[in-house]
């Protein structure tokens, strides 16, 4: 794959295509690519999942440590999300200090999970005020072909669902060799997923390939979940100095529950 930037003529063609509601791969503008999820991709992790969304591939692992709780939440376990945009996954990713994309991606995934209340952090206390479990979600793209944030969020939800709590040694440290059969304290109802809406010209679209993503002018990521029977937007962030209109925001708000149900149904088949 190349590292050449989008050409002017190519962006113009995408504008014309999107305006006509067409895509090169035949999908509708609001249609996701097929995806598949595999589990147990890394057996030292407490839980792990591989997501292939079209040609994008992401591996997500969950590790657990025992740490001190944060002073402002002595009765709660900790959650940490990190990502590394490995130069392995794209000619665009470079070695060295993380670029903004690598900082933003795990933050978006973190907020979608945290705010949804999917993890009951209160149940992750080992000794109140002293020792709690820290749940660490690590995200690694293996092949970047667009829409990594949504792929990562599917991977994170799947890896959390599959995670099993380690044992505890007499010294009070995690015993990774003797895992318990206990799953993480997760809500049955709430499964946060991110849905990222892209915009080029006046057209909104979902799940771009890399080439479509590079032609797009802005994206907004929404963390969505279901809570007490209704669809909740738990987090959101718009990127780039380009505007969304009120009509577009309302259109997206209408679209999110539908897309959430669709992704959730597809993900459930693998869980």
């Amino acid at each position: 794959m190349s590292s050449m930037k989008s050409a002017g003529i190519t962006i113009d063609t995408f504008k014309k295509l999107f305006t006509a509601g067409k895509r090169f791969d035949g999908r509708g503008l609001m249609e996701y690519r097929p995806f598949e999820v595999n589990f147990e991709v890394s057996n030292c992790a407490e839980g792990s999942a591989r997501v292939r969304l079209g040609k994008s591939e992401v591996i997500v692992g969950v590790k657990m440590n025992i740490d001190k709780p944060y002073p402002d939440s002595p009765d709660k376990g900790n959650l940490m999300v990190s990502a590394d945009l490995l130069p392995l996954a794209s000619p665009r990713f470079e070695a060295g200090p993380p670029k903004f994309d690598a900082i933003e991606l795990p933050r978006l995934v973190d907020r979608a999970i945290r705010e949804s209340g999917m993890i009951n952090l209160k149940e992750l206390v080992v000794t109140p005020g002293e020792k709690v479990w820290t749940v660490i979600i690590d995200i690694y793209p293996i092949n970047a072909d667009g829409n990594l944030i949504d792929a990562a969020s599917i991977g994170a939800a799947a890896a959390l669902k599959s995670a099993v709590i380690p044992g505890i040694t007499e010294a009070g440290t995690p015993d990774y060799k003797h895992r318990t059969k206990k799953k993480l304290p997760l809500s049955d109802e709430t499964l946060p997923l991110s849905i990222t809406v892209f915009k080029l010209g006046n057209t909104l679209f979902l799940d771009p390939t890399r080439e479509e993503e590079e032609a797009s002018e802005t994206r907004t990521t929404f963390g969505v979940s279901k809570w007490k029977g209704s669809y909740m937007i738990n987090s959101c962030q718009k990127s780039a100095p380009v505007c969304l209109t009120r009509a577009e925001i309302e259109e997206i708000a209408k679209l999110l529950p539908k897309k959430y149900d669709e992704l959730n149904e597809r993900l459930k088949k693998f869980l």
């Binding site: 190349s2 050449m4 050409a7 003529i9 190519t10 113009d12 063609t13 995408f14």
Partner: peptide, 9 residues
């Protein structure tokens, strides 16, 4: 110069 259309790899 290539006018119009698009390029892909």
């Amino acid at each position: 110069k290539l006018e119009g259309g698009f390029i892909f790899r």
